[in-house]
Design a protein around this nucleic acid. Structure first.
Length: 752
DNA sequence: CGATAAGATAGAT
DNA sequence: TATCTTATCG
């Protein structure tokens, strides 16, 4: 964890950039940000995907893993396992309370990374020649040390503690498109929020510790700004503490100053591995008269040989036990009984074994190579892909021209139902009464859950439910090998949900309220669904994982890696936007192409987006006409005709499609009629985009003509969207190899 | 009231 | 994690 509030405090000196700016440089990377994300089940995939992403942008990653726990954190760590259990317990409670999202978070807290997992990643890193180090203790100082040594040129991490350690160049907030933010130590002086001009690393560190850090709990009610002010006024922490104690406004432990000192010493002198000396060194060289042996809290010394082996990932940094070579490939999985030799370490980080999840380490590692990551794709994507297929086929009209799809009817009907969805000013507690009312006039939950999607009133919340159900189905199928039938139906619903989601994008109006409403409606079922997954965390995660597992693939000739995920929502809308031809420099950020067609872009523009996105800027400055042309198509195409079919029809046609083989055409068949009949209506939806482009009114005629013509989008759309096309191709290629089926969608999930 | 800190929560990955 | 809300303090 970092120092909460630190990044916001330094907001003004954060420079939006793009990853590609670091091309050719080596960046230290810690895996922590991903540790908790997907659970251990997919840890390797996340990390390796990230590595690939970096490589794609020409950046050389230098992975740094956490090692043993620092005694300074002992207090915290000791209670960590306990807290995990608590988290888990509260997570379950939340589930019962019908708050799956919160529950999700809680449950994730109950999981942590194990050295075995790190080792599994390391094996992969070796394969691709990516340098790495397992820090003897913490990855943060280790990375800063590497930076100081000139071994790396910057640090990519979400952890603001790095700044406290004195990182020179911190790159944060990296998103899947390569956008990120750089924080430079030398820019501190330019900080508007607080005046750091002339502040030394030491002062900065003092401020951080005073506010509360990993090594010392902060003083309650004393935030960063106050800490800053106090320090500025009294200079030394000693005086600050005295003053604080003096005016008695803050409750300060008697030994606070001593603890403060220890925390600082920990920041300064804890040990890191020096790859040059091949031995442990102090993060900062201690004064000759300092007795480091008396500072047990900074972590004990480790013999060079052992340190080296730890750094290499051969030895468990906590137990010092040999780590058996992790299973590398699917076939190797057999020989894996336990990934670690010797007794199982007690360390919390290894642990994470709550009473009900005793051996997480064994399971996760194994599971990676079970091909789990692909199973979801294989199973679930069937539908997603077929959608894409349809879209693609339709979009290109079998390769030639863009086609406009109608937006699903339900939207419009929903729109006509303002009373329940009108935005209203925030108030303290109207939600309840309101939701009550809504509930009354809404259909029974069961209807919502099982209708074929024709029912209106479905909203984004419902999508969540569906996801859950799908996940459940997925789970079931994976573990029992059956229970597929219901899933199909749900997937249909899912598709519905997709449209709905899109709708919400297009129609800014209140989704919040709507959501809330549904959450009420759904809660019961949500719980039910969720509860089914409770028994075992791993299961829970796997279920979760199929929602967005990323699988990186290396394309033969390019650096591009493909991520497939069965995500069915936001990405769906991009799908259609993919042009079909063109070649591009693999170096070009896909982001440009993607964002161009993504409505997220509009949202993105509001925030200090990386000046980067040439595409973004170009788009926003583009004349209305081109704007429309580029956005419109995606809008329309994003809406598959699918929703208009009944689930059965869908299933049927899908099966049909599947039988007929690869991606393209066959599927266009069912659609034409709709296209024609609804085409007109789709135009009615055009204005919607106007909400993204304030001024000039949409020229329907123009748009219409654009769509009408046989000209391909490429002609209308500016520059780099080709990337998408290429990706599509790549994707198809890949898919062709494997299942010989649709693909397009894959491209969109690059780096996810 | 304005500023700050902390708590709650929705949303994202 | 980002945002919004509430509580508290001059």
């Amino acid at each position: 964890m970092g120092i909460s509030g630190l990044l916001p405090l330094l907001k003004s000196i954060q420079k939006p950039t793009e990853l590609k700016k670091y091309k050719g440089e080596t960046l230290g990377v810690d895996g922590y940000g991903w540790l908790h994300r997907g659970g251990h089940l997919i840890y390797v995939h996340y990390v390796m995907n990230r590595v690939r992403m970096l490589q794609h942008f020409g950046v050389n990653p230098y992975m740094v893993f956490d090692g043993d726990f620092l005694p300074s954190k002992a207090g915290e760590e000791a209670s960590r396992a306990k807290r995990r259990e608590e988290s888990r317990a509260s997570g379950l409670a939340l589930l019962k309370a019908g708050k799956p999202s919160l529950a999700h978070r809680e449950l994730q807290k109950a999981i942590d990374i194990t050295p075995e997992m790190a080792r599994a990643v390391i094996e992969e890193l070796k394969k691709v020649g990516v340098p790495y180090i397992v820090a003897p203790y913490e990855a943060d100082p280790q990375m800063v040390y590497l930076e100081r040594q000139g071994i790396i040129n910057g640090i990519l991490s979400e952890d603001s503690d790095l700044l406290v350690f004195g990182a020179k160049r911190l790159i944060t907030k990296l998103d899947q498109h390569g956008a990120c933010v750089e924080i430079n130590r030398r820019d501190f002086g330019a900080c508007r929020e607080i005046t750091l001009t002339g502040w030394s690393d030491e002062q900065f560190r003092h401020m951080a510790i005073l506010h509360g850090c990993d090594y010392l709990e902060g003083i309650k009610a004393l935030g960063l700004k106050t800490a800053y002010r106090m320090l500025r006024k009294h200079k030394t922490p000693e005086k600050v503490v005295k003053m604080l104690q003096f005016d008695g406004k803050y409750r300060i432990p008697a030994d606070y100053l001593q603890l403060f000192h220890q925390a600082e010493l920990t920041f300064l002198y804890q040990r890191v591995y020096c790859p040059k000396a091949k031995a442990l060194v102090h993060f900062t060289t201690p004064p000759s008269d300092m007795d480091v042996s008396a500072m047990a809290f900074i972590g004990g010394p480790v013999e060079p040989e052992m340190a080296r082996r730890i750094a290499d990932g051969c030895v468990n940094p906590m137990t010092k036990a040999e780590i058996a070579v992790a299973v590398q490939s699917p076939d190797a999985r057999k020989r894996r009984a336990s990934s670690i030799v010797g007794p199982r370490p007690q360390a919390p980080r290894l642990g994470s074994q709550t009473s009900s999840a005793p051996q997480p380490a064994a399971k996760p590692i194994d599971s990676y190579f079970n091909g789990h990551s692909r199973i979801p794709l294989g199973n679930m994507d069937t539908n997603c892909f077929s959608i894409d297929t349809q879209r693609t086929a339709a979009m290109t009209n079998n390769g030639q021209r863009p086609i406009v799809f109608p937006l699903p009817r339900p939207y419009i009907e929903d729109e006509a139902l303002p009373p329940s969805q009108l935005p209203r000013p925030y108030t303290n507690q109207p939600v309840n009464s309101r939701s009550q009312a809504l509930r009354r006039r809404t259909e029974p939950v069961s209807n919502l859950l099982f209708d074929d999607g024709a029912t209106l009133g479905s909203t984004s919340r419902r999508e969540t439910v569906n996801v859950a159900r799908v996940a459940e189905g997925e789970l079931a199928s994976r573990f029992t090998g059956s229970a597929r039938a219901p899933k199909k139906t749900r997937l249909c619903d899912d598709i519905e949900a997709v449209s709905n989601k899109e709708r919400s994008k297009f129609f800014p109006p209140p989704k919040k309220e709507a959501k809330r409403r549904n959450s009420y409606l759904m809660s019961d079922d949500s719980v039910e669904e969720a509860m089914k997954e409770l028994p075992d965390i791993d299961s829970w995660h796997s279920a979760k994982s199929n929602k967005g597992i990323a699988v990186f693939k290396e394309t033969s000739d390019k650096d591009d890696f493909i991520i497939s995920k069965d995500d069915n929502k936001k990405d769906a809308r991009n799908t259609a936007s993919a042009p079909n031809t063109g070649k591009l420099p693999s170096a070009t950020p896909l982001r440009a192409a993607i964002s161009r067609f993504t409505f997220d872009q509009s949202q993105r523009s509001s925030r200090p987006t990386p000046a980067s996105t040439s595409s973004t800027s170009s788009t926003s400055s583009t004349p209305m006409s081109s704007m429309t042309s580029s956005t419109m198509p995606s809008t329309n195409k994003s809406t598959p005709a699918t929703p208009l079919m009944t689930p059965l029809q869908r299933i049927g046609s899908q099966a049909l499609n599947r039988a007929k083989g690869p991606a393209t055409p066959s599927f266009t068949a069912p659609r034409p009629a709709k296209r024609v009949s609804k085409g007109r209506k789709s135009l009615e939806n055009l204005p919607v985009n106007a909400s993204f482009v304030p001024l000039p009114p949409v020229d329907l005629e123009e748009v219409e003509s654009l769509h009408r013509t046989g000209g391909s989008e490429d002609m209308i759309i500016p520059d780099s969207e080709n990337e998408e096309a290429e990706n599509d191709l790549v994707g198809q290629e890949n898919m062709g190899k494997t299942a010989g089926r649709r693909t397009v969608d894959l491209s969109r999930f690059l780096y996810h």
